[in-house]
């Protein structure tokens, strides 16, 4: 299974994560399938509680106990990494997979200078002398757009603004030239005009270095501008996977379609926003069958009885029975083709 040319950089298969509680095992991820190819930006979107961040944490082995991986496989660069020991994983994190979290203040040590944190990380993962590491740290700060970079190496995190701190975190994530960066809501804590700068930096650097990105966010605008491909998550599973243009404009799954429709845009003004009725089921209360069935305008008996797997939709793949030959078109007045997922009717 090693080093196959077609194997993607990161391949997550049927990943299950759960939380043991007094009342039994609480499933959080119910079989996540996704992959990231070399140099690609994969956007992982979903509403809060869908399992986006947990997926990111499970991939790099940073799940907070007692939450634990309960099944599935994680392959990275042709190597299976989900069963590795803490030490082996630590060598992968930072060196081959970089991580960016939402709040830059929690990722930086307030007691150490920026320069010390950068050189320490560089020397941990790369064979480099102190002077060379410091030069590299200066170059990295320059690359992420910090003015007078070399002179800021002696500064502490509190001396930087939020946007500048997030630039430092990006420099930290990039310092060992990783093949993949997992960015969990990297711009959510920032102001809109700063957000655009940070996205710009991340996009440019990953393109220059050929680094792939798994970008986790709830902000569809950020995804629309940054990602090549999008995985939409709902109740602990990926329910749609396709190129960004297709998912945004022409989603196959009724949930993704409704989600895109419910976002107000700057471009057009509509009288009423299309809305999805209800809310996402809570962890532990996910219904059998399709988790979206209770909110779905297209629901059939089949959806409530059996959970759909990923199927080829019109343009993307979606976990929806509409795209299966077993789809009964008797329930509605119109067939699924006409009604389509477009009928994300108001609740």
């Amino acid at each position: 299974m090693n080093g196959g040319a077609a194997r993607p950089l990161l391949d997550v298969r049927d990943l299950k994560v759960g939380l043991p509680t007094r009342r039994g095992f609480l499933p959080i991820l119910n079989g996540v399938d996704l992959h990231v190819k070399e140099g690609e930006v994969l956007g992982v979107v979903g509403e809060s509680g869908a399992g986006k961040s947990i997926t990111g944490l499970a991939v790099i082995g940073l799940l907070e106990p007692p939450a634990r991986v309960d099944g599935g496989e994680v392959w990275f660069e042709g190597e299976r990494i989900d069963g590795l020991s803490g030490d082996a994983l630590r060598r992968i994190r930072g060196a081959r997979i970089g991580v960016i979290f939402q709040d830059p203040l929690t990722s930086l040590n307030p007691l150490y200078t920026i320069g010390r944190q950068l050189t320490e990380t560089i020397r941990t993962h790369m064979d480099m002398g102190a002077d060379a590491a410091e030069r590299r740290a200066g170059e990295l700060l320059d690359e992420v757009g910090i003015p007078a970079a070399a002179s800021r190496l002696g500064a502490y995190p509190h001396e930087f603004s939020g946007g500048m701190r997030q630039r430092v975190v990006i420099a930290l994530a990039l310092c060992a030239n990783p093949r993949l960066i997992i960015a969990d809501e990297p711009t959510t804590a920032l102001d809109v005009s700063i957000q655009a700068q940070i996205i710009g930096v991340l996009k440019r650097l990953c393109r220059e270095h050929g680094t792939a990105v798994m970008l986790i966010t709830h902000d569809m605008g950020v995804i629309a501008e940054t990602a090549d491909r999008v995985a939409v998550m709902y109740a602990g599973r990926v329910i749609e996977d396709g190129t960004v243009a297709e998912v945004v404009r022409n989603a196959s799954h009724p949930y993704s379609h409704g989600l895109m429709g419910s976002i107000p845009t700057i471009g057009e003004r509509v009288g009423r926003l299309p809305q999805i009725r209800g809310a996402m089921p809570r962890v532990g209360a996910v219904p059998d069958g399709c988790a979206f069935a209770p909110r779905c305008p297209e629901v059939r008996d089949l959806c409530r009885a059996e959970r759909p797997t990923m199927m080829g939709g019109r343009t993307t793949s979606a976990a929806c029975w509409q795209y299966s030959p077993r789809w009964p078109d008797t329930a509605g007045a119109t067939g699924p083709e006409e009604a389509g997922p477009g009928a994300a009717a108001d609740g």
């Binding site: 809109v192 655009a196 710009g200 605008g221 501008e225 243009a245 945004v248 404009r249 845009t265 700057i266």
Partner: peptide
């Protein structure tokens, strides 16, 4: 600067 759904695949 505001990220928007209409901006798919464009650099700004």
């Amino acid at each position: 600067t505001i990220p928007d759904l209409g901006m798919t695949g464009r650099d700004r």
